[in-house]
Computed example of a mutant assay.
Amino acid sequence: MKRTWRRLILAGLVAVLVLFLGFVPSDRLAMPVKGASSADWNPKSFWCSPWGKSGVHRGIDIFAQEGTPVMAASPGIVVYAGYDTIGGNVVSILGPKWRIHYYAHLKEIAVKNGDFLHRGVEVGTVGCTGNAAGKPPHLHYAIVTQIPHVRQWRGGKYGFDRMFYLDPGAELTKHAMGGDTSKWKD
């Protein structure tokens, strides 16, 4: 237990030093599911409502065969690797620009709290845990920003929440080589 806390404290100190020294790793994203392309998710699924207990779908579901490697889309520090009832096996990585990259429904988790990861490192495998049980295997991928994007505010239900979520499909497509999402930058 003491080792885990030490690792988390060390990872936090490294993150703070990196930010104060002005070095911010590239915010380019890599495809989080090995071998996937934009054909493997529905671009209209982000912020689709109504969506189960959460009311709105705050990410995208990238479909793949169970056991397909899930890679870190961004460099960062693992702030949570564990289980919750909705996401099942989940990993949350704090990356550049204080964005949390959330990977859910994993069959297996390959990282632990406090790990510093480079883009492209395996974080787990595609599965159907949590509320995805009985559904086709997929990765639920979401990007949460700690700094609100005020221009994304909308009136009505969930309008305030929308400022804290980025469309992962649009972010991934923006970082694809020449708009061709079958070949991803590392």
Rank of each mutant, 00 (worst) to 15 (best):
residue 126 V to I: 12
residue 118 H to F: 13
residue 119 R to F: 04
residue 114 G to T: 13
residue 114 G to N: 10
residue 122 E to S: 14
residue 109 I to K: 09
residue 134 G to K: 08
residue 120 G to K: 12
residue 132 A to F: 01
residue 120 G to R: 11
residue 133 A to P: 00
residue 134 G to A: 08
residue 110 A to L: 10
residue 143 I to Y: 04
residue 107 K to Y: 01
residue 113 N to G: 14
residue 134 G to T: 08
residue 142 A to Q: 12
residue 125 T to C: 00
residue 142 A to V: 07
residue 145 T to G: 01
residue 114 G to E: 09
residue 107 K to I: 02
residue 124 G to V: 12
residue 106 L to N: 03
residue 132 A to N: 08
residue 133 A to K: 06
residue 137 P to R: 06
residue 141 Y to K: 13
residue 141 Y to S: 12
residue 112 K to T: 14
residue 125 T to V: 02
residue 144 V to M: 11
residue 130 G to V: 10
residue 116 F to H: 08
residue 116 F to R: 15
residue 130 G to N: 11
residue 112 K to I: 14
residue 137 P to V: 10
residue 128 C to W: 00
residue 118 H to P: 01
residue 127 G to F: 01
residue 127 G to N: 02
residue 110 A to S: 15
residue 143 I to K: 03
residue 118 H to I: 12
residue 122 E to N: 10
residue 109 I to R: 11
residue 133 A to F: 00
residue 146 Q to H: 14
residue 119 R to A: 13
residue 141 Y to C: 13
residue 122 E to V: 14
residue 130 G to W: 09
residue 138 H to I: 06
residue 130 G to M: 12
residue 138 H to D: 07
residue 145 T to K: 05
residue 124 G to D: 11
residue 127 G to P: 01
residue 112 K to H: 06
residue 141 Y to P: 11
residue 139 L to W: 05
residue 128 C to R: 15
residue 139 L to P: 03
residue 130 G to E: 09
residue 141 Y to G: 11
residue 146 Q to S: 13
residue 139 L to Q: 10
residue 122 E to D: 05
residue 135 K to M: 09
residue 122 E to Y: 02
residue 135 K to N: 09
residue 125 T to I: 04
residue 116 F to I: 15
residue 144 V to G: 00
residue 128 C to K: 14
residue 117 L to C: 07
residue 125 T to R: 08
residue 144 V to F: 13
residue 146 Q to R: 14
residue 126 V to A: 01
residue 127 G to I: 03
residue 142 A to K: 11
residue 112 K to E: 15
residue 119 R to H: 04
residue 106 L to T: 01
residue 117 L to P: 07
residue 106 L to D: 00
residue 134 G to S: 07
residue 120 G to I: 12
residue 118 H to D: 12
